[in-house]
Design a protein around this nucleic acid. Structure first.
Lengths: 251, 251
DNA sequence: AACGAATCGGAATTCCCTATCCGTTTCTCG
DNA sequence: CGAGAAACGGATAGGGAATTCCGATTCGTT
């Protein structure tokens, strides 16, 4: 029978190439055809997840890539691993966006521009919208990047608040809230109203502007939000028993 | 075999009892046990959908009601019909909320209070949150009520704008946007951060306040939003092929 | 060219969901 | 009480999704 040497690599195949030092084992190089298929799969998944969200089936990714389903699972042990591999570079872009925003000469414009950029990324890529509102225990690589972006965002907030343009009671958790809200709009409107999110985001940014027009209820705690995102991720892999399914009910 | 006299009634069984004049055929009264089960099913569905959202399975509703799955389908031809029957009264509450808001002595407080009330309803009932952001071609009863509420809301907007407290560029479509956004937050946070939505809503209301802090992108068209809501509803009944599934991915 | 390991990919397998079937049980009316 | 219609509910279609199996291919090295 089979020497059982399947499902070995996972995400990192070629030499690790993250901007940071998070290098991975970098197993032996793949056979040429395998490497080619791996690239095709990632490209197909990027397209399919971007269009349909993370609930797109592995079968549809395989179809798009022109490979068999088993080929995907041979390279990526689970859907979650594939998702992690696919969105690694989007997370890089995300991190880069924070850095760029910090460079912006105007603290407020940098802040507001960043928020618009991220929400635009959500609108352009449903999969990314899902990613930002959930957390898988597995994809540590994505989490690391998310944390990196989060820290940068904290600096962005501080700078904007110091300049007096961002309301004092704004907290980083408000970004999470906005991302969840925007994901809701993006998922609900979809192609029917591709720009609807812009209005929501514009409204939110105006309300972030100082001076505050009034007090706000307390923001949710970091821990609670993390838990919420973790919970959400459960539905990517399994169609939850009896309960509601899917991650975000796209279309 | 069976005289094939199954699946007959649907939603309206006992005499129609809507506050308006929307009476329905009102078929012959059900047998006592059937009537009892019908009530149990509605109650169970209200509980289950409220807790898990519309993606909750019919099986879980049957379990909660203590009846067989077939019993549910005998009374309600499809899941959609059950949903319509269950949320009929929530829609009544919704309509009543608009009316109450119009009664409020202060135009702005009435407006803001209504928005908070509706969002609170979404937070308290995941099923209702789903309902407000989708539309089934079938459930005409729900649609009629929604339209009724919508008209009332238009008056509420006009009144608030006339009073000078609501920004001039606010449109009824902004409510839809907010409902979608709030649904996103409610679904994403769930029990982990049950009050997170309050902060989002407070921020949004502040940005609705006049004077506008700046111009906004155009709102999506009515038609586009309707299409989006229609599309969303598809996923309640069928686990969409290849695409994303579920309506809102609760869990 | 030749051979073995690495890859393929289509066919299961397992699970969940909506909806239907059909033999059995329960009402209700005479 | 005794049909017989109405209602029950467990079992079963029919379909989708993730993941695994395994016989058939292909690559790379000798």
């Amino acid at each position: 029978m089979n020497p059982g040497a399947q499902h070995t690599d996972g995400t990192a195949e070629p030499a690790a190439q993250h901007t940071d030092g998070t290098a991975e084992p970098a197993a032996q190089p793949l056979r040429s055809d395998a490497e080619r298929n791996r690239a095709r799969i990632i490209a197909a998944a990027r397209k399919v997840f971007g269009r349909d969200g993370l609930n797109a089936s592995m079968a549809s990714v395989a179809r798009e890539a022109g490979v068999g389903i088993a080929t995907i699972f041979r390279r990526f042990p689970s859907k979650e691993e594939l998702v992690a591999a696919v969105f690694a570079d989007r997370m890089d872009t995300y991190v880069a966006a924070v850095a760029a925003a910090l460079e912006h000469p105007d603290p407020w414009d940098g802040f507001a521009g960043f928020i618009e950029t991220v929400c635009a990324m959500q609108a352009a890529d449903r999969g990314f919208a899902d990613i930002l509102t959930m957390t898988f225990p597995a994809a540590k690589a994505l989490e690391a990047r998310r944390a990196e972006a989060y820290n940068g965002f904290l600096a962005l907030i501080a700078r904007a608040q110091d300049s007096g343009h961002l309301r004092e009671d704004f907290t980083s958790r408000d970004l999470v809230l906005l991302l969840m809200a925007n994901a809701g709009v993006v998922n609900a409107t979809g192609d029917a109203a591709p720009d609807a999110w812009r209005r929501l985001v514009a409204l939110m940014i105006q309300s972030f502007q100082a001076p505050a027009r009034g007090p706000l209820p307390d923001p949710p705690g970091e821990a609670a939000l993390y838990q919420a995102m973790l919970r959400a991720s459960q539905s990517i892999t399994s169609p939850e028993p009896g309960k509601a399914a899917d991650v975000v009910k796209h279309r």
